[in-house]
Design a protein around this nucleic acid. Sequence first.
DNA 1: ATGGAAATTTAGATCGATCTAACGGGCGCG
DNA 2: CGCGCCCGTTAGATCGATCTAAATTTCCAT
Lengths: 294, 294
Amino acid sequence: MRELGYVYNMGAARLRAERSHTVGVVVPNLTNPFFAELLGGMEASIDAAGLVMIIANSGDGPSRQAAVLQRMREHGVDGIILCPAADTPDDLARQVADWKLPMVQALRHVTDELDYAGANYAAGMEEAVEYLVSLGHQTICFAIHGPVHSAYQERIQGFREAMTRSGLRPDLVIAVPDRVDHVAQDAHMLFEQGRAPTAVICFNDLVAHGLAAGFYDRGLKIGHDISLIGFDDVTDAEAMRPRLTSVSTAPSGIGQNAAALLLDRIAQPTLPPRRCVSPARLHIRESCGPLRIS
Amino acid sequence: MRELGYVYNMGAARLRAERSHTVGVVVPNLTNPFFAELLGGMEASIDAAGLVMIIANSGDGPSRQAAVLQRMREHGVDGIILCPAADTPDDLARQVADWKLPMVQALRHVTDELDYAGANYAAGMEEAVEYLVSLGHQTICFAIHGPVHSAYQERIQGFREAMTRSGLRPDLVIAVPDRVDHVAQDAHMLFEQGRAPTAVICFNDLVAHGLAAGFYDRGLKIGHDISLIGFDDVTDAEAMRPRLTSVSTAPSGIGQNAAALLLDRIAQPTLPPRRCVSPARLHIRESCGPLRIS
DNA sequence: ATGGAAATTTAGATCGATCTAACGGGCGCG
DNA sequence: CGCGCCCGTTAGATCGATCTAAATTTCCAT
């Protein structure tokens, strides 16, 4: 075989066996390091199972997402890991069921009829709020960002519930610019309309990074004049100064979970839908300090 | 067709037509945001051409890389974009020619017999050195990192040549830890053995980020006590304080170039090997200042 | 040595898109 | 009216791995 330079023709095998040893992965955005880590985790598990990943970008839009799913179907993928784009219609599940295509939702979910791998964003958020409360903070702001989806809503909900439970105002949810490089210069938005937060929780580490720059520009010392908490713990929080306290969602682990769910479902398509929600824990570093009475 | 739920069977078409509408992409590392941007650029071009990307991780090791290439070959990809792993044997080109598989090298190159898309690292490095020299710096250090490959050597060569041309010591090339989170605590290495650099150029922005943290810990003010230049301009340099001056290599554009080269070569396999080297320009921000006489 | 059961080899069918060649219908011109 | 040309249609072959069934061999027991 070696002499003749034989290579196994997976395409022919697929045609006969109806198995392509291929899975599709759809993410809203390739360049966000958060998704890059997610992909890294998936790749490891999927590769170990002897399959390859076909990857595509939905651009967080339902129409592109539909086109991409169709393309993957044509390519005969054995299953799909989908991070549903914002505004994904909820008949997605029905459609996929029609297609008899194993599928798991990652990070975000639009239906309970399909598997889901994510993190417990709400619990992580609550832990962050409780930590800030324990430091004496009362005016706590949640800086949000980006398109609306389940992971977005769970964070807001976790924030509101934890704030309410602590008897604090739950409505300080402020939208900052989507473009990360504009966040710094718009950091002043947090202090408008009579708000004077002493602590800010961010939708993700990118926002935290931008706000940290904005606070620096305003002469606010992080961990002293204002406390800052990130979310995802993915950008090198360890390399920020002061080091960024962040809610760790371990995207690489979520990727592995999603891959494991998909492999199981491919093996047993009749399994009832499962949810694999990994804990999100607050990683305390140096960006938060006790409330200063001014 | 819609009523019956017909889907085009790409696998069958491939078997007959010997075209899979599939390209393989091999990178050494999925989680590095630099490669994520590269993939983003490729995805756009490849998707626009109606092909899909199969993606794999070589872990920067030749043996895994060989396995991954073999797997892609079995899957019948129409071509491959490879960022060659460190220590890739140079008979790679011969092997690929035997396989009659269109292939382009991205970011790094091991042979002139295959297409290559990259950036002019040496020129970018020279621009960085000249800029520091124009600010009066004389003791300039290059902080390197990671496995050895062509992009690594071109940067070192550019540094040495530019330093020599300016009549400065070209040998201040210092290796910092590979793990980014250890760079900060090992920043002191730069000042050992009687070296007292007043400016540091970094192998990439991750190193710059780490060193910035290390300098902060030592009480050095960046842009004042010490000047710092990054490379790649990919981590949100705009969000650092002071903003990081960095040599921009535009990985997304390199990805697009690589994709374009591959599509051309698939269309015309007999084309002579081409090289597509995009310019690398210094993006000046705030992390460098004039030499202070102490 | 022969029958029957088991093991192995071999021949063909299959998956679905595509390519070729043969076939048939339509039409114009002699 | 008939011959030949052109066009559209259709039947079958093809790609390569795999699955089934038939054909062949092996081997043990009677």
